[in-house]
């Protein structure tokens, strides 16, 4: 028995190390690349670590106004989309979790269908529509579709959280003379806040990550987000891809993700798995 436990422990330990290496190796790789000079990557630099470390890529990228604009757009668009999406999803999830109304299943099915929707098939009609409505290459032109595609996830996560909240407390509040709306605001909102927060993180990840719509519905730095801007990266050498700068940009846009993950890992895991396996 003791031997078996030790063996299992050993296996788990090995698995632990393997997972760490597998998950973090590419991150370490771009980090290392970001310290290689353009001259080094142009002449071929297959070894993992730089021959000589340089901060030049970071200096260059912080003077690259296109990248900085893209960073601004990414933050602005992702935050606004997250905010709006979470507000709409909270209302909907509350209704789904707490109220009895016709078409509840329909709403859930619609959300599911949209979660599976092939985003690329929207590019053609949306491109045409946005040109007509003058939303092409604007922030709202991205915010609106981002809301659409984050709402399903937010609605599910939130309705799962809302179901855990004790129903009696709301009733108790109503018996005490509160309207359903007041009961919602005073009792449910504070209890639901952690769930809302989790939904917001997941929504933010989506908007921060999105690429297909970002390259198709924008054309300048007025609205282009970081993932799209990175695919248009132009170095000082017109014929060689700026490896180091791309890696540096990658590192910079990964920093917010790492911070969020470090701070809220428990919440993210809870959000991703909530309700997914019940029933």
């Amino acid at each position: 028995m003791a031997r078996r436990t030790r063996k299992a422990l050993f296996g788990t330990g090995v698995g632990f190390v393997v997972i760490m290496v597998w998950c973090l190796l590419p991150v370490a790789w771009i980090l290392s690349l970001s310290f290689k000079s353009q001259a080094e990557t142009n002449s071929g630099s297959p070894q993992f670590l730089p021959k000589s470390w340089t901060l030049q890529n970071y200096r260059d990228i912080l003077h690259n106004s296109d990248f900085l604009y893209a960073l601004r757009n990414s933050f602005g668009i992702a935050i606004i989309a997250t905010l709006l999406s979470v507000i709409f999803a909270t209302l909907a999830a509350y209704a789904i979790a707490r109220l009895d109304f016709k078409g509840k299943r329909l709403v859930l099915s619609l959300a599911l269908a949209i979660a599976m929707f092939p985003v690329v098939s929207l590019i053609s009609p949306l491109f045409d529509m946005w040109r007509t409505f003058h939303l092409f290459n604007t922030w709202p032109g991205l915010i609106i579709p981002y809301m659409t595609f984050t709402l399903p996830l937010a609605i599910w996560t939130l309705s799962a959280f809302f179901r855990e909240i004790p129903w009696e407390m709301e009733q108790a509040a109503q018996v005490d003379g509160a309207t359903p709306w007041q009961a919602f605001r005073k009792v449910i909102v504070p209890l639901a806040a952690p769930g809302v927060f989790t939904a917001a993180i997941l929504t933010f990840f989506f908007a921060w990550n999105e690429f297909a719509l970002a390259i198709s519905l924008t054309s300048t730095t007025a609205a282009r987000t970081v993932p799209a801007q990175m695919s248009f990266f132009v170095g000082s050498d017109p014929f060689n891809p700026p490896y180091g700068q791309l890696a540096t940009a990658s590192v910079i846009v990964t920093i917010p993700i790492v911070i969020i993950v470090l701070l809220f890992q428990r919440k993210i895991v809870a959000g991703l798995t909530s309700g997914a396996v019940k029933g």
């Binding site: 602005g76 606004i80 905010l83 709006l84 507000i87 709409f88 003058h134 939303l135 604007t138 922030w139 709202p140 915010i143 609106i144 007025a222 609205a223």
Partner: peptide
């Protein structure tokens, strides 16, 4: 909800103003 829409409109105005 109005506030939500206001944010959206503000964003729209801001980007057209920029253009």
């Amino acid at each position: 909800r109005g506030r939500g829409l206001a944010v959206l409109t503000a964003a729209a105005l801001a980007s057209t103003a920029l253009a």
